[in-house]
């Protein structure tokens, strides 16, 4: 594999890792606050549909993004209502919302556009188009670094850069701010937060709302940047892969980024069987490559990455007791 091919694969890695990263950070906020969210998938899917539909109708990718965030937050609010207010089972609520999103997106898309459950193909301003970073053209001919900057780092949509900037921001929020301290505390021991006179319910809803926003961005990215429109089940399990990455990263933001890049790299390899075959000098069945990210997910979830200790109060509704 030559350097140019490697850069192509890495470029694809970054593009494919972005929705995983956004969903993974979304899950991080929720789970750090003690609310398990298996419904990342459904939120992304609903956001993708809404973003695709609104972008197609208005011709504006930004309007699509807002619609995506809105749809995702609606699902997040439902999850919050079930898990926080009514102290329901968080897994069941998440699974239910995933089913709801799976059916509802296709139904609405079909009712609106009559294109077999898809939204119309997007072009121009209805999509987030690649941004060329300053100096990319000028540096292009510098050996090694130039092509790396031009191919891998420059030339993505603005949502990619936002996603990667959210990583240090999340670290800063979690470990350097009052909100972060309280958020982490409420996921570890909500009683400590409650007796300190801070609202457990308020904090958990705030966390779930952030999850909604980030999943909304992830879904909108799928429909208006990575691809040109919404298609049935287009998230293809990315919500679950993001959860696996979250566990892999032990609920830490920077590690989450590396985990998502790893999963993205496997997804990128699946798109380039020729590259894989030239590297391993063997014919590799394409379906096996397609399955790689999912196999990795299973391995991670089965605990092959060492002991991952989730936030201690994760999954437990908070019942005030003395």
């Amino acid at each position: 594999m030559d350097y140019a091919t490697l850069l192509q694969v890495l470029d694809t890695t970054v593009r494919l890792a972005t929705p995983l990263l956004l969903a993974c950070l979304a899950g991080l906020y929720s789970e750090r606050a003690g609310i398990f969210d298996i419904g990342l998938e459904g939120k992304m899917l609903s956001a993708a549909m809404s973003a695709g539909a609104v972008a197609a109708l208005t011709g504006s990718a930004w309007a699509g993004l807002l619609a995506g965030i809105g749809a995702s937050m609606l699902f997040a609010a439902l999850h919050g209502l079930a898990a926080i207010t009514f102290r329901g089972n968080q897994l069941i609520s998440g699974v239910a919302l995933n089913f709801l999103a799976s059916g509802l997106t296709v139904l609405i898309a079909q009712a609106m556009f009559k294109q077999g459950g898809r939204t119309p193909p997007l072009s121009g301003d209805a999509r987030f188009n690649p941004v060329t970073l300053p100096g990319a053209e000028a540096l292009r001919d510098v050996p090694l670094i130039g092509p790396l900057y031009y191919e891998v780092i420059s030339g993505h949509s603005v949502l990619v850069y936002i996603a990667f900037l959210i990583v240090p921001f999340t670290w800063w929020v979690l470990f350097r701010t009052r909100f972060g301290l309280r958020l982490r505390a409420v996921g570890e021991n909500p009683a400590a937060v409650d007796t300190a006179g801070v609202s457990v319910i308020g904090l958990r809803f705030a966390a779930v709302a952030i999850t909604g926003i980030l999943c909304g961005v992830a879904g909108a990215y799928m429909a208006t940047a990575l691809q040109a429109g919404f298609g049935r089940e287009m998230t293809a399990g990315r919500g679950y892969i993001a959860l696996a990455a979250l566990i892999f990263a032990k609920w830490r933001p920077v590690a989450a980024m590396w985990a998502c890049l790893l999963f993205g790299f496997f997804q990128a390899l699946a798109l380039r069987p020729d590259v894989v075959q030239s590297v391993v000098q063997m014919k590799v069945p394409v379906p096996l490559l397609d399955a790689l990210p999912y196999i990795l997910t299973v391995l991670v979830l089965a605990g092959f990455v060492g002991k991952a200790i989730p936030p201690r109060a994760g999954g437990q509704p908070y019942v005030k007791e003395r």
Partner: peptide
């Protein structure tokens, strides 16, 4: 109040537990 079952966050430092809920401002 000092509860019978302590209301402490196990993997926080002493300092973090003490300021929790009584922080000075938005930054830690």
């Amino acid at each position: 109040m000092v509860f019978q079952h302590f209301k402490l966050v196990q993997n926080f430092t002493v300092l973090e537990n003490i300021v929790l809920g009584a922080e000075e401002g938005a930054l830690l």
